[in-house]
Structures are given as C-alpha cells and as structure tokens.
Design a protein around this nucleic acid. Structure first.
Lengths: 349, 349
DNA sequence: GAATTAGATGTAAGCGCTTACAGATACGAA
DNA sequence: TTCGTATCTGTAAGCGCTTACATCTAATTC
C-alpha cells in the first residue's frame, strides 16, 4: 500500500548537492554555507519532504522515542500521569507515545518483550500485572541493550530497574489506625482483583494495622474482586452496606472505586450524611469529582509527582552518554497524604 | 547510549544458517524444515533475540503501526475512544500508539507534518484545532505517500480524507427545540473556546434552533470560554446561576463541562431538584458519573461507535493492496441520541 | 537411470538515512 | 610560490532487516 514518497536522494538531486549535505541541513548541523542551506530548504519545502523516521532512527541508532506503558487508559490516574509525562518528555525533545495493555498480563509481557519496546529509546512502565519472577526475564533485554526502563507504582524485586512508587503499605495502614482512633472497629477495604504489587501492598498495610490494633480481619470486610471501575466500586459498596453487620467505615482502594462508592452512597442517601464513614483515594487533580468540595476524606496518591519523578529518572538515564553504571538503580518512594474531610466521623462505641 | 544488541546475523551464525532463513523463521514463513525452524528458535530463545523494529519496518516498507492522535487524554471521551480503538486495531494485528497534542494547534500541526506520523502506516486523528485551510496542507503528504488518515469528530472540508463524526448541529438544535416545547425560553449553552469545527457546529445548531423558534440569542446565555474541563463547567454554571436573569435551562457542551455543571448544582443544592433544567452530554459509558442513576438528561455522543467506525475505515484502507481510489473518501455521520431524565422539567410560562 | 520438479536454503541487493573520512576550495602566512 | 589551515562538500560504508533470485538437494516420474 505505501507509495512513492520523496527521499533524501530526490532532494539532493533537485538541489544539486549530495545526500550528506541534505542530511546536514535537515539535522541543523553547522558547516553548511547559508547559501546551500537556503537552497536545500527551499527544495524540501517545495517537494514537501519529510525524513523517513525509520531510516533515520536506524542510521542514528536511536529514535528519541519514549513509550509509556499503562494498564488502563480509562482511569484518570494513568491519564493524568500520561499527560504530565508527555509534557516533560516533549519539553526535553523526546517523542512520547502511549500503549495500553488493558490490564492483561500477556499484553504486558508481549509488549515489553516485543519489538516496539525495542524501537523506543526508553520505556516508562506503569503496568502491574506481571509477577516478579517473570519481570526479571522481561527486563533482561533492556539491560543488555542498555535502554532505560522505569517502573512506576509497583513494588519491584530488588534492583532490577529504576522505580518510582507511593507508599501504599504505610498509607493504608495509616488510614486504618486513624479510623481506629476515631472509634471505628469495623473497617472495610474495597480493592479489585487486578494487579499484583499494588494490591498486595495495600492489603498488607491494612492487615498490618489491624493486627497491630488487635482487630480481627473479617473476610467480608476485605473485598478484592472485580475490576478497578466505578461500577465495581458501587457494587462492592452495595454488598458492604447490605451486609448483616455493615462496617462503620469504608476505605476505597483507588480513585475509580471511590467514585463508585460515593455514587452508591448518594443513591442510598448516605451521602453527605455520616452514618458510614468513607475514605477515598485521590489520584489526580482534575476531571473527576471534586473531593474537597464534596467533603470526601482522601488518601492522596500524587500522580503528577510520580510522573515528574519518572520522567526525571528517564531523562537522566537517557542523558548518560557513556556506559552507565547499569546496576545502579534508584527507588523513589512518595508518601501518601491523608486529608480529613466531612465524610469521616468520630463514632462513640 | 545504545549498546551491543543481538542481531539477525548473530543468530544466523550461531544457528549455522543464513540470515534469510532466520528471517523466514521469525516471520513464520513456510518453506523451512521443522528441523531448522526448531534450531533457529532455540538460538533465538537462548540469545534473547528480538528483531529490530526499525530495520524490519524499513525493509518491509511498512510498520503495522497506527497512531491515534488526540487533543486531550484527560477527557473520558477520548480515553474511551482510545481504549476501544486499541482493541480493534490490536485484534487486526496492528500496533496502536497514542499521542496527545494537549489542544495546541502547533502540536497538532507539528505531529501531523512530522516524521513520526510518517512512521505509522496510518493515522486516526481526533484533533480539532487546525483550521480547515491548513488542514488541507497537512493532509497532502499522506495522500502522496498513500497512507490513510482518518479524522474523527470534526467537520472536514470537502473530501480531503475519511471522516467519522457526530451530528452536533442537529443534536444541539434538537435539544433547544425540545426544551422550548417544555416551556423553556431562557436556554443557555456552555462551551469552551477550544477546538474549531466541533464548537462551530454546536453553536450553529443552537443558534439555528433559536432563530427557527424566534427566540432572541442572548449573549450572556451563550458561553464560549475557558477549557473543556470540569472546573470550567462549574465556573460557567456559577456565572449563569448568579446572573440577574438566570436561564431556566442549561445545556452543557460536552461531558466534562457537564460534570462541572452538576457539581456546581449539587453544591448549590439545585440538584437533583428542578428549578433549573440541565441537559448534559454523555460521551462514554464508564468511569464518570452514572447519568442514568443520577437522573441527568443527556445528549449522547457514542464514542465507542465512533471508534469502531474509525477503525473499520482504517482497516479497510490499510487492507487495500493496490493503488486505492485515493480520492474516494467516506464520511460517516452518527446521530446523537437524547435521553430524557429527571433533570429536565416542564415549566409553565 | 535420466529428466523433471518441488522444496529448502543461501546470496546479495536494497530500504532511506547518517557519518567517518577524504577531497576540494579559499584564504592567509611563510 | 608553496604550504598550512579552516571551511565546506562529496563519497561510500554501514545500520539490521527483507526478499527476489539463484542454487542445491532430494523426491518423483517415465
């Protein structure tokens, strides 16, 4: 299906110079007389020439392309992460492109192990489905090609790559402790059954705090099923609220689940009243509900900060010209920030 | 920064065959004995070889890559569009990748005119900032390379490319007429100042209906400012509600503005009560508020349908092996669907 | 057993660009 | 005049793959 297409040779011929000179002009190198430069540019303009990216990337041995790999593009957390990252990377002269794996392990594997990942100069992966052992395998080609790969929001096995994450364990443990102090004893947590390390960390933080406080872990309060969607949040909330012995506080495990829980509570006229306390997760600033205005207490995962940190790491790696100290990977951990608002109430036992 | 990297030659040598044979094995061609195939695969496996995408794409003259260009990744409409498109394209064996222009005209131009766009075998563009005259320029290289480019949700100048769009004009006109029938005479419309054709079509539909109904167009009711964000929706709604002579009905111009308006109304305790009627725009099924549950009347732009139609067109174009009838472009228009719910009330004059 | 043929593999010419290196030119200095 | 020297410009060798074509082998046919 591809057709003709003007090549650098055509330009060279038309401008009466060599392809080398054309290349120099296109890439803005010095040592070309203003005269020649002008002539070449004119021809480029006239013939509507655009360099072939493949050919250029191959010859140069780099593409200036960075791909951002996300599990879902339907979740505002990733969406904001992408948006911020794109800005950062563009500003630094790279071309960011996004691929979505839709939370399926095989997709993540295939992509990371596949040729497109090789096309990019670097990968920022926010995916979280591959188990750690497999991950080590997947990462291998990158280290041997010496291409940076940075993992975001996932608890990595020791030192296989750079990682940027939030302290889910501590964040969730904190919330449980806090609710306990306010008198809550029946604390529920809603999660999905997708993902690996994120879910694990959240559950462990929750369980750790319960144990610490000598509270029993009640099966029916720890809900890990379905997807990371609003619908699922509403559904899980409904189950909890319909239970024989409903919890007095609900922690929603991520941003979209939070929306679902709120929706269900509004629907049942439990919001903004306070017979059930709610702690939501806030993962981005815009284009979802305004938790402050609505008075929802939240634990905040700052996707903008994660994105900036991830890009900074990427740009540093990309900038290291000579054989970098391959195995010197950094791990950046962001604390989650809790904000108390009207949706959480003190209860008298 | 790139490093060693196993090439097809290494594999060929290690397996004791020619590079041609390795290539055949990798690409799954016939005419290779099971024996050789096995041997080569073993070496590929052992040496963790992944073909160089650039080289392959260049030699083949195609990349199987399709890029989806969107103005904003923060809006669920695009997000859903992307998600659906990615599925469709993956299923057909292509590699979809996303680029966001953040609603800036120069970005759109630069990308479409730049080399990455050339890398892809096809482009699906959902961008809407470039004026039509410039667009014709931008599209030219694609037609000369015979690469398909499909525009979504934008009213294209005659026959320069395939396009998939929704009937904004008729949709908005319909809503105005409908509100009129219910007794409304003071009907406001909230839009952003971004975009080109979409805003134009919506405004024209609105104005057309007003004129038809012999209603005056009141400046203060036609709000086209700010961005397509929830915050802006809330802000514009606040202005309208604070006005000396507030409208009796508000039409929100897109999905995110709708959220903002609802938020502002909840905040003012005007929702779900009915002293002001609201028609929202619904552009995706998930991960935003559930308009049905909340009783918001909506005009629906079906992003899933648009995505499927866009991909179908793309796949057809991509499949046309021989010199396709270049100038035979199709235009698919989807009607918008109005659903009445509690947020719209009849008023007695 | 020779001729034919189909299948398996290798050879080598690109794909469109970059870039090390060589060659050319102009200028001034010795 | 003869060399540097400093600037341009061209030549050509790749980058890692694909693929048309040539070659070779072994099976089939008569």
């Amino acid at each position: 299906m591809p057709n003709k297409g003007v090549t650098i040779k055509d330009i060279a011929k038309a401008a009466g110079v060599s392809t080398a000179t054309v290349s120099r002009v296109i890439n803005g190198y010095q040592w070309v007389t203003a005269d020649v430069r002008k002539r070449v540019n004119a021809v480029v303009e006239r013939m509507k020439y655009t360099p072939n990216y493949n050919a250029s990337a191959m010859a140069k041995g780099k593409s200036d392309m960075v791909v951002i790999l996300v599990p879902s593009i339907l979740n505002p957390f990733f969406t904001q992460f992408i948006s911020v990252s794109m800005h950062e990377l563009k500003d630094a002269g790279y071309v960011p492109l996004v691929y979505e794996t839709d939370n399926v392990t095989e997709e993540e594997m295939a992509f990371l192990a596949g040729p497109i990942a090789r096309l990019a100069d670097g990968i920022i992966s926010v995916t979280d489905c591959i188990e750690n052992e497999e991950l080590i395998e997947v990462v291998e080609p990158f280290r041997s090609l010496n291409k940076p790969i940075i993992f975001v929001d996932r608890n990595l096995p020791a030192n296989i790559a750079d990682s940027i994450m939030s302290d889910n364990f501590e964040g969730f443990a904190f919330v449980v402790r806090h609710l306990y102090e306010l008198g809550h004893r029946k604390i529920a947590l809603i999660l999905s059954n997708q993902g690996v390390s994120v879910v694990r960390d959240k559950v462990e933080g929750y369980l750790h705090a319960l144990e610490e406080l000598k509270l029993p872990c009640r099966e029916e309060y720890l809900r890990r099923s379905g997807k990371w969607t609003r619908e699922n949040g509403a559904e899980q909330a409904a189950c909890l609220l319909d239970a024989a012995d409903p919890p007095t506080a609900i922690i929603a495990g991520n941003n979209t689940l939070t929306l679902g829980v709120i929706e269900e509570m509004i629907h049942r006229n439990l919001f903004p009243c306070q017979s059930v306390s709610l702690v939501g997760i806030e993962e981005c600033e815009r284009d979802t509900l305004d938790f402050e205005k609505l008075g929802v207490s939240t634990l905040r995962l700052d996707s903008t900060a994660l994105a900036k940190a991830a890009c900074r790491s990427m740009l540093i790696k990309l900038g290291e010209d000579e054989q970098p100290a391959q195995d010197n990977h950094t791990k950046t951990v962001f604390k989650m920030k809790y904000t108390e608002r009207a949706s959480v109430a003190r209860i008298s036992d």
